[in-house]
């Protein structure tokens, strides 16, 4: 394996681990009844950093499709790009409404924001939309997710068993 390929594999592995972390974090954050409001709010706030890294890791794709969006881009990429923008806007709406109805993070910072019923409703609505968009986002990247799982999880585990069998054969 060349150095370039190793680097690329490392990047894919990092991306996959980060995406899995965001996915699990999102699922936990989406259930404030189980975790409590404080965990819900601090977890989503910390998710901003992971989402920023996610965007930075996929920057080349974002830049390429942005420049070529009106020109020669596959339908799949175009669809993916639009979906990602919707997810981005919806994510911001979740954050904004979440901050405005915050019961833990904002009061802890000593900030007092005006209460608004619409933000409460918007927070619920945008979270439900985000769930659907995340489902579509996952479906569009399903092949990549499965391939990465096979490469970084299934195959190394399989290799471990093969090595054990080989050792047994040698000792026998």
């Amino acid at each position: 394996m060349t150095n370039g390929q190793t680097q690329s594999n490392k990047q894919i592995k990092n991306k996959w681990i980060l995406d899995l972390t965001i996915f699990i974090g999102f699922l936990i954050a989406m259930d404030p009844h189980s975790t409590g409001i404080a965990i819900h709010e601090w977890l989503t706030l910390s998710a901003l950093v992971t989402i920023m890294i996610h965007l930075l890791l996929n920057w080349d794709w974002i830049a390429q499709v942005t420049l070529r969006f009106a020109g020669r881009v596959s339908t799949r990429s175009r669809l993916n790009y639009i979906l990602n923008w919707l997810l981005f806007i919806d994510g911001i709406l979740i954050m904004l409404s979440g901050i405005l109805i915050s019961e833990s993070v904002v009061p802890a910072l000593g900030i007092s924001l005006p209460a608004g019923f619409a933000w409460r409703r918007l927070h619920d609505m945008s979270a439900n939309i985000a769930l659907l968009l995340l489902g579509l986002h996952t479906a569009l990247h399903w092949d990549w997710i499965v391939n990465a799982f096979k490469t970084f999880i299934a195959q190394p585990i399989g290799r471990l068993f093969v090595k054990r069998d080989e050792r047994k054969d040698v000792t026998a």
Binding site: M30, P32, H33, S34, G135, A139
Partner: peptide, 30 residues
Amino acid sequence: GREPRQLGGGWAFGLLKNMGVISLLVAILV
């Protein structure tokens, strides 16, 4: 509202429900 309350399935019911929604979407499309 946002206060922790007991739902039918207990702890992590919402988590499983959301996981189910995403799985369903992925299954329908993939």
